[in-house]
Design a protein around this nucleic acid. Structure first.
Lengths: 349, 349
DNA sequence: CTGAAAGCGCTTACAG
DNA sequence: CTGAAAGCGCTTACAG
């Protein structure tokens, strides 16, 4: 069966290309009878309008870019899978396709150009970014050029351009984690902070400290450490912390679950039992929490909901829906597993 | 900065649009000096040719579709992540973008149309399919329409259309698994087969039996079971097998790792220790093998290599490279972990 | 080596 | 309600 174009379909149906187009696009100004007849010809001939023609005539692509910025190995990262699936499924639900790009390094000009070209060539209507810092120049450039960008973990209260869409974790989860450990009797708490270029890591840092202050807990320098948000970063940070501290904390509060998994390894290597000697708590809701031993207690976010919110509002911006909220903060839920132990309050503060 | 088109760039550079196009496309028939001058104007104005115009003029999309057919929940599946990452990275390495589609159900006409439209609208140059049966009507239809399709786990020796590209696991891994268990002294081996609509599951089934026959092992009906290739399928199959058998096998040979994980759960619920009472072996090289307890011994495949081969040859078909092999079989490597125990051969065969 | 011109397949204001 | 016509931005054979 030969592939027909709209002119040929029009001829077969005995109408003009205009009418074929109206039927294809579901416009209302076509009588039911005409529509049914044209549809029949379209279906019989399996006519699908070519995207090239539609784009030239000014239609949108119906496609979202998904830019996953990940420097390390992500092939076996459950989280990468979850993000990819949530974004793709959310987009599909709203009738959009997803063009995926894994970006290794946003400091590399070739990488930058690869991303930029996707936008500038108008292959997509908007792009979703995951894994960028809160002040990524490329993102800022795209926004300033009027491109619609949806960003996970991004907040600039002073900038509220309608094409700067973001979704965020609530900002007080750090304090909630400290509160929880405190309620279990922990008074000696170590903190593994994240990457201070990321909005949420910074907020979590502030929020950890707020929790410590609220309970009058000692913020001991040797227990404070910084990691990036990765498992290997958490491992290195925890290892260094353990080797320098005179006294062990009773609990470690990690910036995120991946960092906590890294801490598990460091504690294991040092022969320290979890939660017997040291409790560990994460934040995120990583799929691996239930697989590690002991299962990791965490403040979990609903990632499905988070990405749906981001994708939905990004698409709303594309379609110029009015009153579209540019940002949203979503809540966590405590999931108690086996990694945190109740301890006797020995009165030390 | 206003966005310019090729006419405006041509004017600024003092050449014709033809020459701008030649420079953009890197054609050789442009003197170095002209090329440098035009490039300068292009870069200064950040000119990127719109994909819409390029497509209309007959250029390819430079995009591959990735159709992941998965009926169940895949958000937390490590494998889904790995496949997605390998395909996207392989494509990027070869200069291609990837349009991803998660397909829930290839029996549903809406799902079918969603996939078909991506091809028919010419949004992509070719599509990669993962998770389809060896005789998927949609795939056959696309191939018969001349669409270039790359399929993971697909083999039809009698059909060798140049647009039917596939990559496969070697077909004798089942026998290797039996050989290995035999070498550990196992004589009472249970087999969990996969989905017989999948090429590799069928081959593995044949190959399991070949191994059993080669060693003169009894193929006991109560130890033979069928699952789909999922973890829950493996669980159900193993559970049913355990409840009906009078005597326990000393080892379970699973069609694939996910099925083996399901068997773990069934054995755990029945209070049967792995590998103390029953050894378990998988096939695949799933990222979770090292996370489960005991770590799963498996015949692992190099998924990166597998998907690179598929993507590379699919792209070669798009670019009409000569002598492009339409299929390839890749080997496994035994990865010994903790799930298989050496047993004393009690002489039973 | 270079430009003028044709052409790709649609959609949409416009006129009726 | 419907059609003729313009127009979208490129590439490429063609002619020189």
């Amino acid at each position: 069966m030969k592939k027909l174009n709209s002119t040929e379909i029009a001829k077969l149906a005995g109408v003009s290309r205009s009418t074929v187009s109206r039927v294809v696009n579901g416009y209302s100004n076509v009588p039911d009878e005409t529509r049914a007849h044209v549809m029949k010809v379209i279906n019989e001939n399996e006519y699908y309008p070519l995207i090239s023609g539609q784009l030239m005539a000014g239609k949108k692509t119906g496609t979202l870019g998904f830019f996953w910025v990940a420097s390390g190995k992500i092939a076996n990262d459950i989280q990468a899978s979850a993000f990819f699936v949530h974004i793709t499924e959310s987009a599909a639900e709203l009738g959009y396709l997803v063009l995926t790009c894994i970006v290794k390094n946003l400091s590399d000009s070739e990488n930058i150009d690869w991303v930029k070209r996707v936008f500038m060539q108008e292959r997509i209507d908007a792009g979703i970014f995951v894994g960028v810092s809160n002040n990524e120049p490329l993102v800022e450039e795209l926004i300033s050029k009027g491109k619609i960008v949806g960003i996970f973990d991004h907040f600039h209260p002073e900038r509220n351009e309608p094409n700067r869409i973001s979704v965020n974790f609530e900002t007080d989860t750090g304090k909630k984690a400290i509160d929880y450990l405190y309620s279990l009797g922990h008074r000696k708490i170590a903190i593994i902070d994240g990457n201070m270029n990321r909005f949420i890591s910074m907020k979590r840092h502030e929020s950890f400290l707020a929790g410590m202050l609220a309970h009058n807990l000692e913020i001991r320098a040797e227990w404070m450490c910084y990691a990036d948000v990765t498992e290997s970063g958490g491992y290195r940070a925890a290892k260094a912390m353990l080797s320098r501290c005179d006294e062990l904390p009773t609990a470690i509060c990690a910036n995120n679950d991946a960092t906590a998994f890294g801490a598990y390894t460091a504690l294991g290597e040092a022969g320290i039992s979890i939660p017997g000697q040291v409790s560990v708590i994460g934040i995120d809701g990583h799929g691996k929490c239930e697989l590690v031993s002991p299962a990791l207690t965490t403040f979990a976010f609903n990632h499905r909901e988070i990405f749906y919110s981001l994708v939905k509002r990004t698409i709303a911006a594309v379609e110029q829906k009015p009153d579209n909220p540019t940002t949203e903060f979503l809540p966590s839920t405590l999931v108690e597993r086996a990694s945190c132990l109740r301890v006797i309050d020995n009165g030390n503060t």
